[in-house]
Design a binder for these strands. Structure first.
Length: 306
DNA sequence: AGGATAGCCTGCGGGC
DNA sequence: TGCCCGCAGGCTATCC
């Protein structure tokens, strides 16, 4: 479900609650959601230390769509939300935990109430819970012994983060492949963080046809594409992400960026630039919406917008 | 080796 | 109402 902007917004909303909090309890309901680093395979012999029991969270870091919790004992817990995953913070015993898709519940204790919860708390000690839910179970939890292991075994497989990508880097990464540009953008080993929504939105903003071969796009085309990726993703982060059906941030709030989508989910509706109906095709097994008039396959020296 | 395909899962909405 | 179909924000494993 979530792409980079949703994960970054999630990171920002989790941070004030989790950083400085100590894990006092772990209730793992589906052990097979804990996986071997770099694979979907279930990790055998999972223990609570893998899930940071007894440790204090020192920071939350993100690369592409992957989010990782760093603890004071050096351990790391990496997460991926897949298509339908969510992490929500609630005051203790505030949620019906009979939900069959709740896979792990952490209980945490912090000595200073988080700013957003301060009003409702009388004492200086506060217990709360973190709920990990994922109906489709395409996501998972990946325990790692250290930050070095996170980088070597997980994040080294990812390309540079899309939120700070530049045109030259984008060209160097994408022009290695013969796949259409849309498929290349979705390949996380080339650029990390772009998913189906933002790939279509960025290609539209840069005026590039999704079936264009990456080698046929000029450097200034990549400049326009990189600018589009960064500006659209930044705007989405600041709108709390795109909620299509069930994405929620750490506090359970939906994002509002879907109201600003120019092409995603708008097949057959008029193009916001030229008014012609938007077309829908399949590229790399993913639905792709674009404007046949505003997005071209020809190599050009300038692109509209960006 | 890179690229195309199937597969992993549940839930929802539409058509009949 | 109920069933079947297609579709969904992602990625891995397996073939060729």
């Amino acid at each position: 479900m979530p792409e980079l902007p949703e994960i970054e917004h999630l990171r920002r909303t989790l941070e004030p609650h989790l950083v400085g909090a100590r894990v006092t309890g772990v209730d793992l309901r589906r052990r097979d959601m804990v996986r071997v680093a770099g694979s979907r395979q279930a990790l055998r012999a999972v223990n609570n230390a893998h899930l940071l029991h007894g440790a204090t969270v020192t920071s939350i870091v993100r690369h592409g769509k992957s989010l990782a919790f760093l603890a004071d004992n050096g351990r790391v817990l990496a997460t991926h939300m897949g298509m339908s995953g969510s992490l929500v913070v609630r005051q203790k015993d505030h949620v019906h935990d009979s939900d069959k898709h709740l896979h792990c519940i952490w209980t945490l204790l912090r000595s200073e109430p988080a700013p957003s919860l301060r009003r409702s708390v009388a004492s200086s000690l506060q217990s709360f819970q973190l709920f990990y839910r994922d109906p489709r179970r395409f996501g998972g939890l990946w325990p790692l012994a250290s930050l070095e292991e996170l980088n070597e075994r997980l994040w080294s497989r990812l390309g540079p983060d899309a939120l700070s990508i530049d045109g030259e880097t984008l060209r160097d990464r994408l022009a290695r492949t013969t796949q259409p540009i849309k498929a290349a953008l979705l390949n996380q080993s080339l650029v990390a963080g772009v998913g189906n929504i933002y790939a279509d939105e960025a290609l539209f903003a840069a005026g590039i046809h999704p079936l264009t071969k990456p080698t046929r796009i000029a450097l200034d085309g990549y400049g326009a594409l990189a600018t589009a990726i960064r500006s659209i993703m930044l705007a989405a982060v600041n709108s709390g992400g795109s909620t299509i059906s069930d994405y929620r941030d750490a506090t359970g709030q939906a994002g509002s960026f879907a109201f600003q989508h120019a092409v995603y989910g708008r097949a057959e509706l008029p193009c916001m630039r030229c008014g012609r109906p938007l077309r829908s095709i399949v590229v790399g097994q993913r639905t792709t919406v674009f404007c046949q008039l505003c997005q071209t396959r020809r190599t050009r020296t300038t692109y509209p917008r960006g």
